[in-house]
Structure formats: structure tokens, C-alpha cells
Design a protein around this nucleic acid. Sequence first.
DNA 1: ATATCCAAATGACTTACGTCA
DNA 2: GGTGACGTAAGTCATTTGGAT
Length: 281
Amino acid sequence: MGLDDDACNTGLVLGLGFSSALETPSKKPSCLKFEQPVTTVAPPTTFEPSLTLGLFGDQGYQVTKKSDVNKSGYLHHHEEPGAGDLYRRQASPHSAVSSFSSGRIKREREVSSEELEVEKNSSRVSDEDEDGVNARKKLRLTKEQSALLEESFKQHSTLNPKQKQALAKQLNLTPRQVEVWFQNRRARTKLKQTEVDCEFLKKCCETLTDENRRLQKELQELKALKLAAQPFYMHMPAATLTMCPSCERIGGVADGNSKSPFSVASKPHFYNPYSNPSAAC
DNA sequence: ATATCCAAATGACTTACGTCA
DNA sequence: GGTGACGTAAGTCATTTGGAT
């Protein structure tokens, strides 16, 4: 699992290159793209080195709204008047039978007689409820159990019912516990990866910002250099200049009095816009 | 050495949503 | 096309644990 591959799923795109000032990021989702920064002297164009960092719309994780929790039976039967916590639940995880939530009903259906037997036989299933203790006792997996689960997760991050059953038996856990473990494992792996991606992108952003700064500076220097060193005809509009194909000299064509289109180039002289502002007239 | 606090880890739960028969 | 069963993701809560003080 390479970082580069993962970065491709972030929905972010970074671009570095020459573009016009207000170029919008490409709409096409793609991996991070690092174009080689152009550091050689660029021809006098209107383009400037630019960096783009874009976020694509629907690539992110879905955020589910919980505004309609009341439609589930759970809150109707268990919500406490005045309680601020909409998600307050019963103290014991094994008091599911008393819950009317669809999830629990489903859960009860899901547990086959075979699974129930496994659950009964499981030494690690909390028995507190049977003792009348309503506290939620949290299962802690042993190192061996964790190792086996991890090993299994490496092979396949989701389990089919048969695999789940077999693994549960092997671990002396309920299939439900194995299922929950895999759910949590998937979720937390994804979260971790998202954090890693985020860090990576932050670093990319910093790098590109620095690079952008450096290129802007370089561009300013080149512009200043150009102003100081270029001959006068460089200040003429581009349309007024032509190049002789044979001698490769630049000449102005706007000069109607000129016998040859290359006459300007044949007698070049330097033009200082500051000392002779009216020279063009 | 012990008690306390706090953050991280993690097991369990609910809800929403997609897929399939 | 509507419906129920099922699986999974996302979000959340509660408990446990380990480190800092």
C-alpha cells in the first residue's frame, strides 16, 4: 500500500506549471501531479509559473444527517425527557432484547441457532446481565485473539458468514464480536490512512508554496534583467517585428519609410525609455 | 509507592444507505 | 417498481489502559 496510490483517492489535486494568472484547477480527478518546475529562461510570454491546489467535490466522505433519529423506535422507547444526548443508550450492551431499534431486531434475526450456541459457549461473553449487573463490561481481546484477527484482516478486510463463523469459533468469540471487530478495524484503518494522506498533502502544499515563492522571485529577477539588457526593438509591439529567415535578424515592419523590412536590425541602437521617452514618436 | 487525571485505544452500538432476491 | 433482508460505512458512546503528574 503505497502512499502515492492512497494520495490518489483523496480528491485533491496539486498542479505546478506555467499558466495564466487565474487558471482554474482541472476538473478531472487525478493523482498528485508534480511537473518539473521550469527554471530556464522562458521566452517573453504572458505566462507565469503557477501552482494550483484543488479539492474535488464529491470525493469526500459522506456525512450522514442524524436529524431524523426520531423515526427509529429506539428514541421513542428510550429517550429521556430533557436529556441532551440524543444518542444515550442502555447501560448494558446485552440488553438488546429490550431495544426496539431496527438494528437490534435485525441483529436478533441474524443470530442463527448455531451462532447462539457459539455465543453460549463463548467464555468471553459478558454474563453481567444474567447476574443483574447492568454495567457495560468491556471485552478485552487477548494478544492471541488480536493477533489472529489481525492476521485474518490482512488476508481479507471483510468476512463472509462462513469465515466469520469459523473465526469466531477459533477465537472463542461470538460471530457478532468478530463482525464488530472487523467493522471497527476497517473504519479505523481508513481514518488512519486519511490522517496520513492529510499530512502528506500538507507537506506537498508547503513544498509547492515554497516553490511558488521561489519561482515568483526568479521571475521578478528575470524581468528586471530583461528590462535592463534588452535592445530597443524589444520594446516594440510584437506585431511590428519580423525576423529575416536567412540572417535571423529582427526587423520592424511598421516603418513605412524603410526600404527593407530588416533595416532596423541592420542598424540597431539602444533605446532608453527613461532618458528618451519620446523616441518612439 | 500511590492516587489522580487525561488522552488514546477499542469494543459495542445506532443509523443511513446500497444491493439483492 | 415496491419491499424486506442483509452488509457495510459513518458516527458515536462507554470502558479500559497506560502515561504523566
